[in-house]
Each structure stands twice: as structure tokens, then as C-alpha cells.
Amino acid sequence: MLKKKPAACFVDNKYCPGCGHGIINRLVAEVLEEMGIYEESIGAIAVGCASLMPETFAVDCIQAQHGRAAAVAAGIKRCRPDKTVFTYQGDGDALAIGFSETMYSAIRNENITVIFVNNSNFGMTGGQMAPTTLENQKTTTTPRGRNIAETGDPLNVINMMKDLNTAYIARGSLTNNANIMKTKKYIRNAFEAQQNSEGFSFIEILSPCTTNWKMDPIKAMEHIEKNVTPVYELGVFVERGEKNA
């Protein structure tokens, strides 16, 4: 099987060693290229580690305000319905400051694709608690571990979203080859749903943050398998055709 990095990943990315963003950037690029829509795509890129993407990702991009990527993408898509429009966002961005914009894009069933990277903390700002941070997880703002009596539970956004009228919702992870290939299939389905004007597609991806978790990359992947996946179940939560059929 011949393999070559996709044209969109034209230079080395700027993420930390073992960061999942590099894999996810590549999967998005591969899917867009394989579908033949890479040159017709537009990305709304979030603030946070996601903002490192445009410099190394050769797709027309806009730097959205913190949390507002889904609204920015909706503005673009409504003006240019023939283009493929996606957001690329982390958990602090999409679920903390941008909760309203993310949820309302789903509520309006905007015909966009949200690529949502869950690494259970604010990576760029140095590892503070995010809505997705696990119970008892230590972060720089929960130094003794997240106390859910004070902060509420870790936010499983797909549970909140899946009853809405949307086109496709899935959650994948990057812990091994099989999971990466499954995640790629989810991303492909999401973009196909958009191409067919089926509506809102949302892919959550469990991803390691080796630097702020202070973990060796291999250990970080094990942590996702052992501790993160039980909280954020993998799979397809809204099948294509399920809601709009």
C-alpha cells in the first residue's frame, strides 16, 4: 500500500512531540484529498493549539475568535454553500467559551463539519481545566484534582447533542491503528454528509496532550484507553440518514 503525506500537510506541523493534533490534521487532509474537495474547502480554525494549524495546512482558512468557529463557519457556508466548510476546535474553545456557538450550530443543523479535539484541558494556555477534564484529573487550575462537587461533571457534549436534528455525530480516538482508521472513517462520513447537504456533522476525537499531562506519549495513549474512553464512549451516535430519513 503506497503512502504519502497529503498535499495539505505541506510542511512539518508545530505541535509538541506525541500530540494528537498532527494525526488529526493529517486525517482531515487525507479525507479532503481523497474526496477530491481539498482545493474547494474552507476551514474556520479555533484559538488554542488549533491556531497553529493554518500555517502548516494548505487549505483556505480563517482564524476564528475564541469559541466562535462554528458561527464563523456558518457565515461562510451560508454564503458559499457549494464549498466544504469545517471548523477545527479544541475542548476549551468549543465547549467552554464557545458552548453556545457550538450548540446553536447543531440546533440550527448548519451544514458544516465540526472537528472537535478533546484532550481534556486547555493546552495552549498551559494545561488548565477544560469542560472535558476528568474527575480528579490534575490541571494547573485543579492542582488537587478536579472536584466535581465544585465544577460539575466532565462535559459529554455528544450526549447533549445527539437528540437534536443533526446529520452525523461520532466519537473516535487515536490510541492505535484501528482507532485511527475508524476516526478517519468518521471524518469521511462527516464530510460526505455535508456534501450531500444532510446538515450538521460533529466528530469528537480523544487526543493526547503529552506536555500538559506530563506524560510520555505512549503512556498518554494508555491513559486515554484506560481512563478517558470509559467516560467518553467511542462510536457513532447519530447515523447518517437516521434523523432526516
Binding site: I62, A64, R68, A74, G75, K77, R78, C79, E101
Partner: peptide, 26 residues
């Protein structure tokens, strides 16, 4: 044209930002 009643002014101006970036009068 496109009319969106947004969930907030924050979202509204963000959509305008996207539409303007796409070259449209917004």
C-alpha cells in the same frame, strides 16, 4: 440573500466575520 437570527450578538458578528471573509457584503 441570507438572514440569520443569531443566538447572541457574539454569534451574529462572528457569522458576519465569516461572510465578510468569503467576500460578501455583510
Amino acid at each position: 440573500g441570507n438572514f440569520v437570527q443569531s443566538e447572541s450578538e457574539l454569534a451574529g458578528i462572528s457569522m458576519v466575520y465569516g461572510a465578510a471573509a468569503a467576500g460578501f457584503r455583510a
